[in-house]
């Protein structure tokens, strides 16, 4: 039941309008970081304040809401945010990817392909992909506006020269529609191929940094690379210990003091659905 002490979805209507305008601008210019007046939220920065504000702005009473943190529906962060909107918006919640209309995520894209009508909201810590090489915001903005992206490849060059391959394994930079270079938030690069040509709307919110950016459905997204060191979406070379899936992104779990370990799907909904359908991995009880 909605807590009557709050406006629908916590934020006041003017604020939601402001955020929606930023979202629409972001959708109109895919990959471009739109500044917005980020509000104080009842949670610390780094806990998804950007994503929560975007979710608040797009949620309607008819929506079904899902929150995942590193693929899991049952972590503290995911549970808190889900409860937050249950209480302030009274929306239905779910852990099922296909049943959800709005999915807020931290660090993953669900394994199950999303469809038209769904919205995926990413929590973004640092929206500026050029930040670590060029700390001046005035300069990085100019680089974006003038499409001066040589520096982005310097980072990949440094990776190869130091590690022999592109060692960046998450927050792997992409180019959107041949124009803006974008940080896809700290998703594993395994998820990068899913960013492009996705049927769902993808929205990115960075609360502390006060930036929103977006990918409309079916947007071209290309991971940056070198001709002789092409992009590779990598994952641990194991099947899931619980459901036996070989196509999903895996977490490595240490299961005893003797260094025993197992690999399981990071997407809990995907894994549970497979187990329910009778798939069984080698570590399943």
């Amino acid at each position: 039941m909605t807590d009557q002490a709050y406006n629908f979805a916590y934020l006041d209507e003017q604020t939601k309008r402001m955020i929606r305008r930023a979202i629409l601008k972001g959708l109109a210019i895919p990959g471009y970081q739109v500044p917005f007046a980020s509000r104080e939220m009842p949670m610390p920065y780094g806990w998804g304040t950007g994503g929560v504000q975007v979710s608040a702005a797009v949620l309607t009473p008819e929506d079904t809401f899902k929150v995942i943190d590193q693929g899991a529906d049952d972590t503290t962060n995911a549970v808190s945010i889900r409860t937050f909107f249950q209480r302030t918006a009274g929306v239905a919640t779910t852990t099922s990817t296909s049943d959800a209309t709005v999915i807020q995520t931290r660090h993953r894209i669900p394994e199950e392909a999303l469809s038209e009508g769904q919205i995926l909201v990413y929590q973004v810590p640092i929206p500026e992909p050029l930040r670590f090489l060029e700390p001046r915001e005035s300069e990085t903005r100019k680089m974006h506006s003038l499409e001066e992206y040589g520096l982005m490849h310097v980072k990949l060059y440094e990776d190869i020269s130091r590690h022999g391959h592109i060692a960046t394994s998450y927050a792997y930079p992409v180019k959107v529609e041949g124009r803006y270079v974008m940080d896809p938030s700290p998703i594993p690069k395994f998820d990068n191929p899913k960013l492009g040509d996705m049927a769902a709307i993808q929205l990115f919110g960075a609360g502390r940094e006060q930036r929103i950016y977006a990918l409309p459905p079916y947007t071209q997204v290309v991971s940056l690379d070198f001709e002789d060191h092409p992009f590779e979406a990598s994952k641990a070379d194991h099947p899931c210990g619980m459901c036996g899936a070989t196509d999903s992104y895996l977490d490595e779990l240490i299961i005893d003091d003797a260094g025993g370990r197992m690999f399981v799907c990071s997407d809990t909904d995907y894994c549970e659905a497979r187990q329910a359908a009778g798939h069984k991995g080698k570590d399943a009880a």
Binding site: L151, H153, V154, Y157, S161, R162, D228
Partner: peptide
């Protein structure tokens, strides 16, 4: 903060060179 090779290579990458070797 960037290696000597990266420093020299930056201008090449800035004008569109995309072959690491």
């Amino acid at each position: 903060g960037v290696s000597a090779g990266g420093n020299v290579g930056e201008r090449l990458m800035a004008v569109g060179e995309r072959h690491y070797g």
